[in-house]
Design a protein around this nucleic acid. Structure first.
Length: 891
DNA sequence: GCGGACTGCTTACCT
DNA sequence: ACAGGTAAGCAGTCCGCG
């Protein structure tokens, strides 16, 4: 039996009695002697030995050979190795709780054309905390298990306890994933092929190394469990990834209409140019000769880039296919929906035989027969990647915006349509796109490739799935693999719902499922010397400390029912450690206590430090999304009680901490979810609070940042802070929002710059004067129409197809409809730029508007609200800035 | 018929 | 197809007003 850390009320007096007074009367607590352990490169090499071998990139099902097959990358040769499970050692299957003898008498099963055999198996049923006997139904092919109306999973009898649900388990797991889990394969990690069998590479890891990492994690409660996962995961975290040989490809297609992108399904127009940027120095641009264009080369063609001209488009395609087939990995930007689709369909249209095309069209993506294909557009679109791995440095998902943000250089801007470009300009343009696509995977010593490999290892997903699917699928896959390793039965969503479909909190926002976090009402005004404390990954900590998991919250044991979760009617298991509690807690501890500190450890060689930094980011993605998935209905382990217990305990933690802070006479001026802002605290009291949290809540509270001053208005999630070095930290203010016109953004940034220079309350007077000038100047420019149209554009994203806006017609939709009427393609994800104009409609797309039409008054009021947010906080009235007298000047 | 109060929709942000 | 909470702007509706 394990004892869960219980949060108990603790008064200030009680708390202080745990500490001693020193000679000067100051309170000090016993400092734990923390031994600093660093794993030197040398130790890692000696104590963690991974057998050499080709790296597993992906596993799929080969419909023709009727077996699983794998693509591996051989670092020695730089080529792909293909492997088939030719002896069909592994077969598709599902499980049922019916006895084998019963299933044997079900004709629809045993006479099914795909039926192979039955096996008796034992599984651990976590939901009911017992071992159960089940029958494994093995079939010849995946579609016989599921995916058709007459698949075996549909033909099994109905579960007597759940209406409309069949007595089939684990039948919805894709076969290629099943193959990975059952054979303990780890995509992204070395493997070996021995006697026709594909196995994960042998790993030799010294127990001392494991012990030392365990010490670093300072974990007592979960020691045994951590030892088990650490042994399996440490090699995945530490084994280097190979530099993979690859080529990025981009194609250009002729289009008779400048703003219409050719339809890749029809592929009506010729491919006029294909560019390859490669890691092995074979960069080449394939160009179609055209009657009206001179076939000459750009003067500034980078060294080593070859250009090949073709008279016949068919030959150009054949050469393209030859190159595509010669790389283990092809990178594109939007290749799934355009480049590869276009090439594929164009080749068919021109009469090339299907077998001569190295491209395969899968259900929802494009792949290569031999190699693998990563569509970086899809990878960078992944919100978890954008936000957690890249700190949101890019907002728009375009090659231009992403490369601008990550590489510091963008696409070549075009003045004329692609079809009209001179050949040399076409070459330059086309090559640049391929080059930056490649560079997106090369910058910072191949950071993106390393990240992808690490994410593959942790999630156990093939490269194609990993780079195309969202974080919930990654976590799903990780959990499924862990279930299989421990022989746990993977529960069906319906039974989870039946057993755990209870909730006990109401959301504040209409339409949401349960209650979330607390936001403390800010104390408006300028506060000097502010320390921000925050819980280091609060929700994952809560999940770990409180043993939260789908099987432990509302567990089946009577004796656990007194182990209550605050603010809910839920209880949590005292007998068994939860699977998600262990995994999420482990990943969190690895990141917070090891990978992140090591990524900043100056004693380590640069390369190793950089590796920890990538690892730290990869873990961050999993950790940060791990709570959310339990509150997402489409997640197969969806469990409301887990999600709402997590936030409930989170609320409890911050509330208790604020209470404690106030008891200590600390001034709490703001807080959001896991942070509290304290004005002018003493170093001791902060330390005291941090120790209190660790001791009483079992959650680490850290100093997150220290501001010279913070300006708060009465608005939540809206503030401006200035660090000691003058850097300004802006949160939520309109001037920072993507859709705010640049005209306002720029003026806003000027004001912010002024505020960064403020060092003391006295400096404010000066700053105010300057701010006044900036805003007046902004006003004046508008009035005099001294602006570019683009500066005034609101840039709002279209989140769904135009015709599905039925309830209301927002302004950006109005503008988008005008664009469509003018013959431009508009689709979900597009950013619509529009300006406000005089007239009944009030808006126009920036492309169609003229300067004279601008509704200046509308913009004046936008300026007002944008600046009010800052001025409010500084205690300045907007009218004070544009006093009646100054307004007179403009009128 | 018009304007203000109100609700709901949509987007972008914060944690 | 991670979550909920907050702000802002606008669209659309209701209601009162002799």
């Amino acid at each position: 039996m394990i004892v869960m850390r219980k949060v108990k009320q603790c008064s200030l007096l009680e708390f202080f009695s745990n500490t001693q007074q020193n000679a000067h009367g100051k309170y000090v607590s016993e400092k734990k002697e923390v031994r600093k352990i660093t794993l030197s490169e040398d130790r890692l090499k000696k104590e963690l030995v991974v057998e050499d071998g080709p790296i597993l990139l992906s596993v799929d099902y080969d419909g023709e050979k009727e077996c699983a097959f794998a693509k591996l990358y051989d670092p020695e040769s730089g080529d792909i190795i293909l492997w088939w499970d030719e002896e069909k050692r592994h077969r598709p299957y599902c499980l049922t709780d019916l006895k084998k003898e019963i299933v044997e008498r079900l004709p629809q099963i045993v006479n099914h054309k795909g039926f192979l055999r039955l096996e008796k198996v034992e599984k651990i049923d976590l939901l009911r905390d017992r071992v159960i006997k089940m029958t494994k139904i093995v079939a010849k092919d995946p579609l016989s298990i599921g995916g058709r109306p007459d698949s075996i999973r549909e033909l099994l009898p109905e579960d007597p306890h759940i209406r409309g649900v069949k007595r089939a388990w684990e039948a919805q797991i894709h076969y290629h994933h099943c193959f990975i889990y059952d054979n303990n394969l780890i995509p992204g990690f070395p493997h070996r092929i021995e006697g026709g069998i594909l196995r994960c590479a042998k790993v030799d890891i010294s127990p001392k190394l494991l012990e030392d990492v365990l010490k670093m994690l300072e974990e007592e409660e979960y020691k045994e469990e951590y030892y088990d996962v650490l042994k399996r995961y440490l090699p995945l975290f530490l084994h280097p990834t190979p530099p993979i040989r690859r080529a990025a490809m981009d194609i250009e297609v002729y289009s008779p209409q400048a703003d219409r992108i050719p339809d890749p399904k029809k592929a009506e127009f010729p491919v006029i140019s294909v560019a390859f940027a490669t890691t092995d120095g074979n960069d080449v641009v394939l160009v179609l000769k055209r009657r009206d264009k001179k076939a000459d080369l750009p003067e500034d063609l980078p060294e080593g880039v070859k250009v090949e001209f073709f008279d016949d488009e068919k030959d150009l395609l054949k050469r393209t296919f030859e190159i595509l087939d010669s790389y283990p990995l092809i990178l594109t930007f939007n290749g799934d929906n355009f480049d590869l689709q276009y090439l594929y369909n164009r080749a068919l249209r021109l009469g090339l035989r299907r077998e001569s095309i190295p491209i395969v069209s899968k259900k929802d993506y494009m792949n290569l027969r031999r190699g693998c294909h990563i569509d970086l557009y899809r990878f960078f679109s992944n919100n978890a990647i954008r936000v957690y791995a890249f700190d949101g440095v890019y907002k728009d998902i375009t090659l231009d915006a992403i490369s601008e943000a990550l590489l510091g250089k963008g696409k070549i801007s075009l003045e004329i349509p692609i079809a009209d470009l001179e050949i040399k300009d076409l070459i330059r343009y086309n090559y640049r796109d391929a080059k930056i696509t490649l560079e997106l995977t090369q910058f910072s010593d191949n950071l993106v490739m390393k990240l992808i490999f690490l994410l593959m290892r942790i999630s156990r997903l093939p490269i194609e799935d990993l780079t195309r699917k969202g974080v919930s699928k990654w976590i799903q896959s990780l959990f499924y693999a862990e279930h299989r390793i421990h022989n746990y039965l993977i529960p069906r969503a319906e039974e989870l719902q039946q057993l755990k479909g209870v909730k006990s909190t109401e959301a504040i926002i209409k339409g949401k499922k349960y209650k979330g976090a607390i936001v403390v009402t800010p104390v408006p005004g300028v506060h000097f010397n502010v320390t921000v404390l925050d819980f280091a990954s609060l929700y994952p900590s809560v999940i770990k400390t409180w043993n939260l998991s789908y099987e432990t919250v509302r567990c089946p044991h009577e004796s656990c029912k007194d182990n209550r979760i605050p603010e809910t009617n839920h209880w949590v298991c005292k007998k068994r450690k939860g699977i998600s509690s262990i995994i999420i807690g482990f990943l969190r501890d690895i990141r917070v206590k090891w990978a992140k500190p090591e990524s900043k450890n100056k004693e380590l060689p640069e390369e190793l430090r950089a590796w920890y930094s990538v690892l730290q980011r990869a873990l961050k993605v999993f950790i940060n999304a791990s709570y959310g998935v339990f509150g997402a209905e489409h997640f197969p382990l969806f469990c409301l009680p887990v999600a709402e217990s997590t936030t409930a305990i989170g609320r409890y933690a911050i509330t208790e901490t604020i209470k404690m802070a106030k008891e200590m006479n600390l001034k709490v001026i703001y807080g959001d979810t896991d942070s509290i802002f304290i004005e002018q605290p003493s170093a001791e009291s902060v330390q005291k609070l941090i120790e209190w949290s660790k001791k009483e809540l079992g959650i680490e509270l850290d100093i997150d940042k220290v501001y010279r001053y913070v300006a708060l208005s009465e608005r939540k999630k809206n503030y401006l802070g200035v660090f000691e070095d003058g850097t300004v930290d802006i949160k939520g203010l309109a001037g920072k929002k993507r859709n705010t016109p640049l005209f306002i953004q720029n003026a806003f940034m000027n004001v912010v710059k002024m505020l960064g220079e403020v060092k003391s309350p006295e400096d404010f007077e000066n700053a105010k004067e300057n701010i006044r000038k900036i805003i007046q100047d902004c006003y004046l420019k508008l009035k005099r129409r001294e602006f570019e149209l683009e500066e005034l554009a609101f840039r709002v994203q279209l989140t769904k197809p135009l015709d599905s806006y039925r309830k209301v017609t927002p302004q950006h939709v109005k503008a988008a409809r005008m664009l469509k009427a003018a013959g431009k393609d508009v689709k979900p994800g597009d950013i619509i730029s529009f300006v406000k104009v005089k007239g009944p409609v009030g808006v126009k797309p920036v492309e169609l508007a003229r300067k004279e039409e601008i509704d200046v008054d509308k913009y004046l009021s936008h300026i007002e609200t944008a600046f009010e947010q800052i001025l409010d906080a500084l205690g300045i009235e907007f009218s004070e800035i544009l006093g009646t007298r100054s307004l007179d000047i403009f009128m």
